[in-house]
Computed example of a mutant assay.
Amino acid sequence: MKYAIVFIYDDKKSEYQISVPDLPGCAITEKTIDLGMEEITKAIKSHLAILAEYGEKVPNAKGLESHRQNYILENPHTFSQAFWAIVSIDITPYLGKSHKINVTLPELLIAQIDDKVSKSSDYKTRSGFIASACFTELEK
Rank of each mutant, 00 (worst) to 15 (best):
Y54F: 13
L109I: 15
L109P: 00
N102A: 08
K97W: 00
K31A: 14
I72G: 00
K119G: 01
L108K: 13
N60A: 12
K97M: 08
G55S: 10
H67M: 07
E39Y: 04
T104S: 14
K119V: 04
E39D: 05
G25K: 06
S19D: 04
S80T: 11
V87T: 07
T136S: 04
I110P: 02
A43G: 02
V58F: 04
K100P: 00
K45A: 08
H47Y: 15
D122M: 14
E107F: 06
W84G: 03
Y94A: 09
K140A: 11
E53S: 12
Y123R: 10
D10C: 05
A49N: 10
S19C: 08
I18F: 01
I5D: 04
T41M: 06
P106K: 15
K2L: 08
I8R: 14
N102D: 02
Y16Q: 03
N60V: 09
K31I: 14
D122H: 12
C134D: 01
E107H: 12
E137W: 13
T29V: 08
A52V: 05
A85S: 15
M37N: 01
Q81A: 13
E53G: 07
L138N: 03
M37R: 11
I72P: 00
I40E: 00
H77R: 13
S46I: 13
Y123P: 06
L95P: 00
I18N: 02
K97A: 09
D90V: 10
K119T: 07
A43T: 11
M1A: 07
P21N: 04
P24E: 06
V103I: 15
K31S: 12
E39V: 03
D115L: 15
Y54P: 01
D10Q: 11
S80I: 09
E39W: 04
E74C: 07
E65C: 05
D90C: 09
A4P: 05
K13C: 05
I44G: 03
P76H: 10
S88C: 08
S118P: 03
I5G: 03
L108N: 12
T125C: 09
A133G: 04
N102K: 12
A111L: 13
V103H: 04
E38Q: 12
N70M: 10
L95V: 08
N102G: 07
I5N: 01
K100W: 06
S88N: 09
L35E: 09
Y3T: 01
A4E: 00
K62Q: 12
L64F: 05
K119E: 12
K116A: 12
A111T: 14
F7N: 05
G96E: 10
Q17M: 13
I86Q: 14
T125G: 04
S19G: 00
I33D: 02
H47Q: 06
Y71A: 08
P21W: 04
I130R: 07
V20K: 02
F129E: 12
G36D: 02
L51D: 01
L64C: 01
K57Q: 15
Q112M: 10
F7R: 10
A27P: 00
L23M: 02
F7H: 02
A82P: 00
S80H: 08
Y16F: 15
A27S: 03
S127W: 09
Y71M: 11
L109S: 07
I28E: 02
D22G: 03
I91Y: 02
L51P: 02
